[in-house]
Design a protein around this nucleic acid. Sequence first.
DNA 1: AGCGTATTTGCAACTTAATCTCAATTTCAG
DNA 2: CTGAAATTGAGATTAAGTTGCAAATACGCT
Lengths: 143, 143
Amino acid sequence: MESKIFRDFLIQRGLKLTKERMAVLNQIFSIHGHFEPEHLYLNIRNSEIKASRASVYRTLNLLVESGLVERISRSDKGNVYEHTYGHSHHDHMICTTCGVVIEFFSESLEELQKMICTEYHFAGTTHTLEIRGKCRTCQKRKK
Amino acid sequence: MESKIFRDFLIQRGLKLTKERMAVLNQIFSIHGHFEPEHLYLNIRNSEIKASRASVYRTLNLLVESGLVERISRSDKGNVYEHTYGHSHHDHMICTTCGVVIEFFSESLEELQKMICTEYHFAGTTHTLEIRGKCRTCQKRKK
DNA sequence: AGCGTATTTGCAACTTAATCTCAATTTCAG
DNA sequence: CTGAAATTGAGATTAAGTTGCAAATACGCT
Ligand SMILES: [Mn+2]
Ligand SMILES: [Mn+2]
Ligand SMILES: [Zn+2]
Ligand SMILES: [Zn+2]
């Protein structure tokens, strides 16, 4: 479970398990899908146990370091995150018309990337692939 | 040539060809590789024909719309761009240790992405793939 | 359970990228 | 040339995210 992982991560780094950090963790894992820090902060302001903006951002960085959360991209505004625990690796297609996000995963794509890395003697650990274009719905709804 | 393309783009949009816009264009096409807007602005401050920060940012957006320049990513600081004219499509590997950027292109990767798009009924137009990890040099220089 | 200390919190001030406002200037079609 | 429409630059503004610091808190130790 994610709170166990986070607790272990904190202990291992000599950090403390505070209610604010737990509030951020719980809020994130109650969100389905992608989120922006500011939105996360607003949710927390309205929840049972609150945390300041500073703590939200600080905790978010810790969660990324722990591997429980990943930074997906930067929108025109700020960062976009998603939790990765219980949510295996995938890439994204983003419709430039309606903004819908399609998550996909392709084993052959992953394999091919590994081969390319080998070719360049590069030890790849993570990647982000974002394909932009038009989703099915927006294609139909064209002039 | 890029200035011809930009001129046509401006005319077609009813915009004017100014010396400031040309200064930005020329500066960008005299840069080899990736660049950040602030750095671009500083270069222009020291060049023959100058342009204000506002104009630099405004022109940069126009250049992206014209297709001559692409936004590669957002670093922890601001955006990173590169010119695409005379510089065919490619993706990036970024060393998380030394920051070196390896540009690569794989036809099979492009093909595979097209196939995946078809599978999802998605009309992909552009994509960004960034692989992060350790470059050859930084792998050797490990503990 | 209580203590002592290192860590964390919240607030507000700060930083930095990028955009906006608007009066003055420039472009360019006619 | 001329005049309308677009553009410019300077500085104000916005917004994301970080930071300094005094007060509060977690938690290992007894
Ligand atoms: Mn996702
Ligand atoms: Mn490149
Ligand atoms: Zn769509
Ligand atoms: Zn390296």
